[in-house]
Amino acid sequence: MRIVVASGKGGTGKTTIATSLALGLAGDGSAPPPIFVDCDVEAPNAHLFLKPLFEQSQPIGIMIPVVDEALCTHCGKCAEVCAYHAIAVLGQKTLVFPQLCHGCGSCTALCPEKAISERLDPIGVIERGPALEGIDFRRGLLDVGKPMSVPIIRALQKQVTPRPGQTVILDAPPGTSCPVVAAMQGADYLLLVTEPTPFGLHDLRLAAEVARELGIPTGVIVNRDNGPYPDLETFCRSSGLPILLRIPFERAIAEGIAQGKNLVEIQPEYGERFRQMFHQVVRGEKA
């Protein structure tokens, strides 16, 4: 089973929930420890809580066009087919803008003069290694200054091959744009972490819409719960989103997180609460 943890709004507790769920499941004993994938490749931080020992590192890149000016007739076909305006014909010159290129290969395939070849443009790495409780930890890391994280998230997704009975937990980036969609793709279940604030609810609505569009069963976790917030309850009820767990707004939790501990370490009963929640989700899936 592949579970994605997302939120819309940043800083609601995605990584807190994802890492605590991973530790909860790792403590189950009846199944192999989960695979954990940190998809927040622009600012990964799950390693702070799961403390992996990275043993493997693999460079990731996209193929970008290289124009042979000796063969180019400046016909403009490449510029015409590029959806991202990453290649332009200006008079007697054809220019490539690597930062705009998505590496789709259309220009290379459609150049009538075969004047375009491709080179690998490195954009980041994927790292992997064992973490706490035998968790199989992976993360992507986008190079500073590179604008496109989706190819790294796709590479992470592709390399996840769980053993039978092994759960995969993916920690999504914040927001609802392409990287989040890339992280959500292929999910069996989506956990949306929110906080009882207008901002949290606003972004929860957006994230829930993405989930509906992708057809992923979804549940909500309310973090920093500090009393009733009727708008949130009403939204979840009317959208058919079950609230699976509420984590109270408590100083002891905040202090623990700030020290690099996760919920299961701060309050061990969360291990059981996350396992129960997981089984509820799995049962809901099978029902």
Binding site: Y84, H85, A86, A88, V89, L100
Partner: peptide, 8 residues
């Protein structure tokens, strides 16, 4: 790529 298009 707005700038590239305007330049083209």
């Amino acid at each position: 790529g707005a700038g590239v298009q305007a330049a083209q």
